[in-house]
């Protein structure tokens, strides 16, 4: 099968002016300006199959948004080849732009002063969506995101989460085949995040759309993505199944123990992470999990015991930390 997204040896470098602080350096920079090359993305390659949802992870400044902007045709790569559904994004052909969407969590494109229902009409005209198809898609999306009572209110009167839902509807009315989602749930409460996640999943299943998602909320990634690509300092650290990321980068398990005696010292069993009343969480080496579990049950009176993989946030954190330490 031809990949929906294919990226080969992509690099995006910026030349940025720099100078030291102070008046002397400011005056000197007028005559002798110095530049530094920033490698926002440095030689990354990957491909994504049609219909896949892939999480694109990395700390701030890792190069995630730059990559999304190259893929969506906003930025020209310094080097490398990019192909999305058979198009070269930098050519920005109208046919290509009609089949993709870039949703940025903190950017609005709907009119602030008007009800979303008016702005959706503009989207229809921009993408030349046939009237019947437009009405059906719009009404479906409104139902899916439970927006019926809100579409006639001016956008400025909506909450952040409600606005984000409207933005997503506006961005997807033309039923794009490829979605680039940059922090689509940023700043939203848990319920709203869950709604948006469910909607993205539904959209992916219903239309077979390919989705590349960046998010700092691991709940988004866990709920939507089987596969993740982790980048740091513009380079790929990991590309594979989310479960393999946990296996590969986490050598610990988390044990939750509830004891009738909250004062018990558990430090001999593992690293005590938290203590909340009678509930204690321990970090234990994966290889010792069975032994420690058996010891806990035999040595102490235990009301409840759970064994879990390390939370994905901690795994990702350990990936970035280990890379920093290796430098």
């Amino acid at each position: 099968m031809t990949p929906a997204i294919s990226v080969s040896k992509l690099s995006k470098h910026y030349k940025v002016p720099e100078r030291e602080g102070g008046m002397k350096a400011a005056v000197a920079s007028l005559f002798n300006r110095k530049y530094r090359t920033v490698k926002a993305v440095d030689d990354i390659s990957f491909s994504i199959e049609p219909g896949e949802i892939v999480g694109f992870l990395g700390p701030n400044g890792a190069g995630k948004t730059t990559t999304l902007k190259v893929l969506s045709g906003l930025l020209h790569p310094t080097e490398g080849m990019v192909n999305v559904i058979g198009y070269e994004p930098t050519k920005r052909s109208h046919d290509y732009l009609r089949q993709v969407a870039l949703v940025m969590g903190n950017r609005n494109q709907l009119s602030w002063d008007l009800p979303a229902i008016d702005s959706f009409e503009l989207q229809r005209a921009i993408y030349s969506i046939p009237a019947s198809e437009f009405k059906k898609t719009r009404d479906d999306f409104i139902d899916l995101l439970e927006l019926k009572d809100l579409v006639n209110k001016p956008i400025r009167n909506l909450s952040l989460g409600e606005r984000m839902k409207m933005e997503i509807v506006g961005a997807l009315l033309h039923r794009p085949k490829v979605l680039f989602l940059d922090e689509p749930t940023i700043g939203l409460d848990v319920t709203m995040q869950r709604r948006i996640r469910a909607f993205i999943k539904e959209y992916n299943q219903r239309w077979g759309a390919t989705v590349l998602l960046t998010s700092h909320y691991m709940a988004d990634v866990e709920a939507l993505c089987k596969r993740v690509i982790v980048i740091h300092h513009g380079q790929t650290l990991f590309d594979g199944e989310l479960s393999r990321l946990v296996t590969q980068f986490s050598s610990f398990k988390t044990l939750g123990v509830t004891l009738p005696n909250p004062e018990a010292d558990l430090s001999q069993y593992g690293e005590v992470l938290t203590r909340d009343g009678a509930r204690v969480t321990l970090r234990v080496a994966k290889s010792k999990t069975s032994q420690v579990t058996a010891n806990l049950l035999s040595d102490l009176q235990v009301d409840d015991l759970t064994v879990e993989d390390t939370p994905i946030d901690d795994v990702i954190d350990s990936v970035f930390t280990s890379t920093e330490e290796a430098k």
């Binding site: 902007k69 969506s72 045709g73 906003l74 920005r92 109208h94 046919d95 732009l97 009609r98 993709v100 969407a101 870039l102 940025m104 950017r107 609005n108 494109q109 921009i126 993408y127």
Partner: peptide, 11 residues
């Protein structure tokens, strides 16, 4: 960042 959103449109 509004221009980026406008540049994503086929117009």
């Amino acid at each position: 960042g509004r221009l980026s959103m406008e540049l994503m449109r086929p117009i």
